[in-house]
Simulated scan of single mutants.
Amino acid sequence: MAPDGNAVIFSTNSTHAANPQLMREPGYDPIRDFAPVTLIGLAPLALFVRSDFPAQTLSEFLEYAKAEQRQMNFGTGNTGSLVAAHLLMRRGGFQAEQISYRGTPEAITDLLAGRLQFVVTDMGPTRGHVQAGTLRPIAVTSRTRSVALPDVPTMQESGLPDFDFASWNAIHARAGSPPEIIGTLNRAFVEAILSPEGTAFFRNLGINTAPGTPEQLGEFNASELQRWGEFVALAQIPKT
């Protein structure tokens, strides 16, 4: 069946930047096999601990993590969480045991239960726990602060220069979809994302909205694919 633009995918940094760098045979090409429609936005991650964790700031967390004979562990439920945590360990100069989960909610459950010391993840699965006071964000991973956690400093502000990492969401169609259809889709999605309802919806998920043109998404996607290769190499994560 020829591509007609009627099928779109809610794409992420996992599907279009991380997996091709983490998997030997992902089964698709994130650039060649898709037609970019629009970026939705960037989703900063944050370092989360339980509310009773002894460290309040990133410097205190790193001091605690680097204490002699300290046994630390953390949970990961997706590729963004995985790479961000490894980057934190490399840049922060400490080691911790990785515990893999099928999804982030399971990791959050064990963090709340005290079976994990920290999780680096996005705001979506943690928002209710932060509001309830059971989880505490220490620092966000992006260059700029999160719209969902405006009072939480960035890693850079907290003493880790050049730490700039964020998940992202976008819309792609099948490669070869008619340009006029891609244009129509772009205008419709951008209008919805920037509407008051759309802005509020994505803010609640911790996403800093940044829609644009298909060409801008194409350039961004190619850049992110390269950056994720650098992230994976820096974090020393082997391909599976």
Rank of each mutant, 00 (worst) to 15 (best):
residue 192 A to Q: 12
residue 183 G to T: 14
residue 145 R to Y: 06
residue 200 A to V: 13
residue 104 T to A: 05
residue 104 T to I: 10
residue 180 E to H: 15
residue 164 D to I: 07
residue 76 T to G: 10
residue 24 R to D: 13
residue 111 L to T: 03
residue 150 P to A: 03
residue 143 R to W: 12
residue 57 T to R: 07
residue 75 G to A: 04
residue 32 R to Q: 11
residue 226 Q to G: 10
residue 156 Q to H: 06
residue 211 P to R: 04
residue 85 A to Q: 12
residue 69 Q to L: 12
residue 99 I to G: 04
residue 139 A to R: 00
residue 239 K to D: 07
residue 79 T to D: 15
residue 38 T to W: 01
residue 135 L to H: 04
residue 138 I to H: 00
residue 130 V to R: 03
residue 84 A to W: 02
residue 85 A to D: 09
residue 137 P to H: 02
residue 116 L to E: 01
residue 216 Q to W: 12
residue 238 P to W: 02
residue 172 H to A: 10
residue 11 S to M: 05
residue 33 D to H: 10
residue 169 N to F: 15
residue 68 E to A: 14
residue 163 F to R: 03
residue 73 N to D: 04
residue 79 T to N: 15
residue 122 D to P: 10
residue 9 I to L: 14
residue 158 S to K: 02
residue 145 R to M: 07
residue 125 P to I: 00
residue 115 R to E: 09
residue 189 F to G: 06
residue 73 N to K: 06
residue 89 M to W: 06
residue 135 L to M: 04
residue 9 I to K: 10
residue 69 Q to C: 11
residue 235 A to E: 00
residue 4 D to Q: 05
residue 223 S to W: 14
residue 139 A to Y: 00
residue 2 A to M: 15
residue 193 I to P: 04
residue 110 D to F: 05
residue 9 I to P: 09
residue 171 I to N: 03
residue 174 R to C: 15
residue 179 P to S: 11
residue 123 M to C: 15
residue 166 A to R: 10
residue 78 N to D: 09
residue 71 Q to I: 14
residue 194 L to Y: 13
residue 155 M to H: 05
residue 201 F to Q: 07
residue 96 A to H: 01
residue 78 N to V: 08
residue 144 T to V: 14
residue 192 A to P: 11
residue 19 N to T: 15
residue 221 N to Q: 15
residue 220 F to R: 08
residue 151 D to T: 14
residue 127 R to T: 12
residue 234 L to F: 12
residue 63 E to R: 14
residue 13 N to M: 13
residue 206 G to F: 09
residue 227 R to P: 11
residue 62 L to A: 01
residue 51 S to Y: 12
residue 24 R to P: 13
residue 179 P to F: 06
residue 225 L to G: 08
residue 152 V to E: 01
residue 236 Q to C: 10
residue 229 G to D: 01
residue 113 A to Y: 07
residue 143 R to K: 14
residue 186 N to Q: 06
residue 184 T to L: 13
residue 125 P to A: 00
residue 204 N to L: 15
residue 4 D to N: 08
residue 142 S to A: 14
residue 183 G to P: 13
residue 42 L to H: 07
residue 177 S to W: 03
residue 50 R to K: 05
residue 155 M to C: 07
residue 235 A to R: 00
residue 220 F to P: 08
residue 76 T to Q: 10
residue 136 R to C: 05
residue 94 F to I: 04
residue 174 R to P: 14
residue 173 A to I: 04
residue 32 R to W: 10
residue 28 Y to P: 11
residue 48 F to Q: 09
residue 129 H to F: 08
residue 103 G to H: 11
residue 31 I to P: 06
residue 164 D to F: 04
residue 231 F to T: 06
residue 229 G to H: 02
residue 55 A to R: 02
residue 34 F to I: 11
residue 17 A to E: 02
residue 89 M to Y: 05
residue 12 T to L: 07
residue 116 L to S: 03
residue 214 P to K: 02
residue 156 Q to S: 09
residue 206 G to R: 06
residue 180 E to K: 14
residue 57 T to K: 07
residue 68 E to F: 11
residue 224 E to Y: 13
residue 207 I to N: 06
residue 67 A to M: 09
residue 163 F to E: 01
residue 27 G to W: 01
residue 179 P to G: 08
residue 157 E to W: 03
residue 55 A to N: 02
residue 94 F to R: 05
residue 154 T to Q: 00
residue 157 E to V: 03
residue 212 G to T: 04
residue 142 S to P: 07
residue 151 D to P: 12
residue 181 I to F: 10
residue 81 S to Y: 07
residue 20 P to F: 03
residue 176 G to C: 08
residue 29 D to G: 10
residue 147 V to M: 09
residue 82 L to E: 11
residue 207 I to D: 05
residue 182 I to D: 04
